[in-house]
């Protein structure tokens, strides 16, 4: 019986403690800056080096480039850039290798959709996804 009484004491002690739960859907979840959420893409920064598509372990990035419209400039600019969030595991490797930080992580993680097609995010969507950007992107 003594054991039970001791246990009860611990329980009672915990009754007076501050609440630790979050009121999540009503209030946003506090997340640290490094949190890996849905990417933000800057089309103007991208140099079409293909490194992000190559490092992606699940092959979920597809991108195409086109010639620079200003023919005096060399290099390419981005034409299409899609991430398939059905298979993206938000592993952070694409943002780690990008030399120009054209693709960075945000702190958003809410990806629930009613249809799988909606998880296919294209350049425009990724460009517009510009809230809660991550400040520190290179280790």
């Amino acid at each position: 019986m003594f054991g039970l009484a001791k246990g009860l004491k611990y329980t009672l002690k915990n009754m007076t403690r501050k609440k630790l739960t979050y009121d999540y859907p009503n209030e946003p979840l506090p997340l640290p800056d490094r949190f890996r959420g849905i990417q933000k893409f800057y089309p103007e920064k991208c140099i079409v080096c293909n490194q992000c598509a190559n490092i992606c372990p699940t092959d979920c990035i597809t991108l195409t480039g086109k010639k620079h419209p200003d023919s005096s400039k060399r290099g390419k600019i981005i034409d299409t850039y899609d991430i398939n969030f059905e298979i993206c595991i938000l592993c952070d490797l694409c943002t780690e290798v990008c030399p120009t930080e054209a693709i960075i992580m945000t702190n958003q993680f809410e990806l629930a959709e009613y249809s799988r097609d909606e998880l296919f995010k294209d350049l425009v969507w990724l460009d517009e996804n510009d809230t809660q950007l991550r400040r520190e992107n290179k280790a």
Partner: peptide
């Protein structure tokens, strides 16, 4: 319109893939 177009594009791309 843009959204629709974008969606259409995305779908087309997926198909092409």
């Amino acid at each position: 319109k843009q959204k629709a177009a974008a969606a259409a594009k995305a779908k087309a791309a997926a198909l092409a893939k």
